[in-house]
Design a protein around this nucleic acid. Structure first.
Lengths: 286, 286
DNA sequence: GTCAACATGGAATGTTCGTTCTAAATGTGG
DNA sequence: CCACATTTAGAACGAACATTCCATGTTGAC
């Protein structure tokens, strides 16, 4: 009975435990910090491993794990492990898995239903890919370029036109001056002839690339108009004439792509630009 | 050495195991079927429980679990359990969780980056909601209505315009006759006056509803043109004049919505329609 | 420099685990 | 109804487990 143990109640879920670990991080002894770091970095290991195997991976003694758990109010290591296991149980199953369960339990899916599910799954994948491939610094730079432009010229044809048209709509609502290029044939080049270095352009083009879009973007770049672009491949002709460019690989279902991820990207960019303008205006009023 | 054991290799992943269990379901003895059912219904229990605890839940003896595992080529219960655990490990973590890890490890996210992540997360949520809310039978019905239409009239204004414009593009590629209503003011009503009962319309409208879209849809419905619609609320004026209608609740980030889920829906509908036409044409050539 | 308080490593311990084994039960073909 | 094969239940066993305990190491105050 030497230890005047603080009998605090142990965290009941993973989030609470995580918060508690983070909070007490600094006041913990060296080995316990080591365990803390390992636990938060390798939660799956904690969930599945045995005290001995985890101890070996984390390069501590099994007894250290027990002491760590006790520090946070658990009876022993097992109690702490329960939290890590519960976390995995509660985690909703992946979309594909839910799909399969659906097919399994009910009647076999009709063709339309499986096409529908295919597109939803593809959209999920696209969003994951988007999140993984977009560099935060590049995004920030793109926002800066476009936020300080007087007029934002939106260049898009064919498959990418819906993206720009939505951006044009949103920019209108957000009181950001923009011009949608690609609406009616003929007036496009006249419109673009107004663009100067104080403006900027956002070009979207997916394979098969509309050569017109690439040509317009190149012409603008030559005249000193900064160009930001969104495309689906590193080999896009747009990439070479752009200050900043992004690659978004839309997953396809049966050869057809939806624009789900591109839409999310476009809206994020649009709102970021408007938000940056708002803040800049606040800082330097006039 | 009495048992002339079939030394088949055990399944290496959960899917293979599942398939093997389903395949051999009928030839297994009673208690093993009992285990099989329990295992597929409560995979998480198998992953985390002990042989004893699982045996109690499944109302069999622990030894039965071992025999079950051996039936499928594993050395013992533990080998089988590994498969159930691997399944949980491989399951990618939820997007929100990955986000938090990102914020935690690196520097605090810039405003643009967090807006970006917010839209990606919102898009994921929207897709989940979409998958949950769209009724397979209704979708099938919508496909049927639109597939047998001579011309598909696409009605959309403002925020929903990008959806229809992409559908129009895709229909063009798929050789499905469609007309996009909402391009230039004035000619819309002239265009719609051609529509008859042998055609169909697909209307998209989100709040705040463009009264023009609702009016056009109602006019078509009165003239016997079947209308299918996509909207974001049960109270949409479109719903009442539509044969079939769908509700897609796009999650928003800071009050702004991207059209990610709607886009996925639109493409699924578009491709389903084209596919149905292709099959109908094959069955009744002429 | 000394001592107390705390942290750590590693062996010891009692428990629980998965597995094996055997006898009883159940089903099957003649 | 019997002989036989298969399936099952439950006890027995050895290995692996989480935990405890204590000697040793480390730190910081005085």
């Amino acid at each position: 009975m030497a230890v005047n143990a603080e009998k605090i109640a142990p965290p009941q879920d993973f989030e609470a435990l995580r918060a508690a670990i983070l909070e007490r991080r600094r006041e913990l002894p060296k080995r316990l910090v080591q365990v803390a770091a390992y636990a938060l970095d390798n939660p799956d290991e904690i969930a599945f491993g045995t005290a001995a195997s985890i101890a070996e991976s984390a390069e501590v003694q099994p007894s250290t794990l027990v002491r760590f758990a006790q520090q946070f109010g658990f009876d022993g290591f097992s109690g702490l492990q329960q939290i890590f296991r519960a976390r995995l149980k509660e985690r909703t199953s992946s979309y594909e898995e839910r799909l399969r369960t659906l097919e399994q339990n009910g009647a076999p899916l009709s063709e339309s239903a499986s096409i529908f599910n295919g597109f939803v799954a593809a959209a999920h994948r696209s969003l994951d890919a988007l999140a993984g491939s977009v560099n935060a610094a590049a995004f920030e730079q793109a926002v800066e370029i476009l936020a300080k432009a007087e007029t934002i010229y939106l260049i898009a044809k064919r498959r990418s036109y819906p993206i720009s048209s939505y951006m044009a709509y949103a920019f209108g609502k957000l009181k950001v001056k923009s011009a949608l290029v690609g609406t009616s044939a003929g007036i496009d080049d006249d419109l673009l002839s107004f663009a100067g270095p104080r403006d900027a352009a956002f070009a979207v083009s997916f394979s098969p690339y509309a050569s017109e879009s690439a040509g317009q973007a190149r012409a603008l770049a030559l005249r000193g108009v900064p160009v930001v672009s969104l495309t689906d491949s590193v080999f896009s002709p747009l990439a070479e004439c752009s200050r900043v460019w992004f690659e978004v690989a839309e997953a396809d279902h049966a050869g057809f792509r939806s624009l789900s991820a591109s839409m999310a990207f476009a809206m994020a960019l649009t709102v970021s630009i408007a938000e940056k303008r708002r803040r800049d205006a606040q800082e330097r009023p006039g």
